[in-house]
Amino acid sequence: MNGFRKEFSTFSIALMAVAIAINIGAGQIPRAVGLPLYLDSIGTVLVGVLVGPWAGALTGFLANVVWTFTGLFPQAIAWAGVAAIIGALAGVFAQSGWLKEWWRAALAGLITGVVAAILSAPIAAYVFGGVTGNAGTDAIVAAWRAAGFDALFSNVAQGTMSDPLDKIVTYLIVWAVLLALPQRLKARFGNQSGQAAKTRARKRR
């Protein structure tokens, strides 16, 4: 419970709001340059990495609530739980020091992508009748169905084709951002190295 409390300072609350706006703003860049990626969870992963798993989970959840509010993608709320798990995983990976080297960050992205694909598929298969309402992904699902697979498998297959690559790129961007972020700001969160947390503990004594 103490860890939970510590994650919700005014600073991290302000970061969470900005992170959700980053999710939406950054999500349009791949479209503008013509890349078949979503990149709509950079902010969520960033909060998980900088602040911790609880804050990451909450950011993911609220991000999908906001997507629904804006009317850009009203069905997003159905995947809010998956977004929360993506944020929580980011916090856990950072605590285990996986964001220090680029290749481990990429591996974290790969794992997150596979988990996200497996968790999203049943929602598409059972709540939305096997589709997501996105023409591109639904065409891939249709191709798998045509090859003779059932709704759940086809959605898992579609997810594992797009999500791992998307999350690997997301994690690499977050890794690069961490390198460029001023030390002074990183020290205000201190989820990754434990260094800042130690400093804070010393101050309290």
């Binding site: 005014t10 600073f11 609350i13 302000a14 970061l15 709001a17 900005v18 706006a21 980053i22 703003g25 950054a26 860049i29 791949p30 340059v33 013509g34 890349l35 990149l39 950079i42 960033l46 790129v169 961007i173 690069a176 951002v177 460029a180 972020l181 001023p182 700001l185 205000r188």
Partner: peptide
């Protein structure tokens, strides 16, 4: 090459936003 474009595009967007956070807090 488009993948590499993400660095000059995403970098400024995310970094400038995070710097905003301190002011907001």
């Amino acid at each position: 090459k488009r993948l590499r474009l993400l660095v000059p595009l995403m970098g400024p967007l995310v970094l400038s936003s995070i710097v905003d956070v301190e002011e907001r807090a």
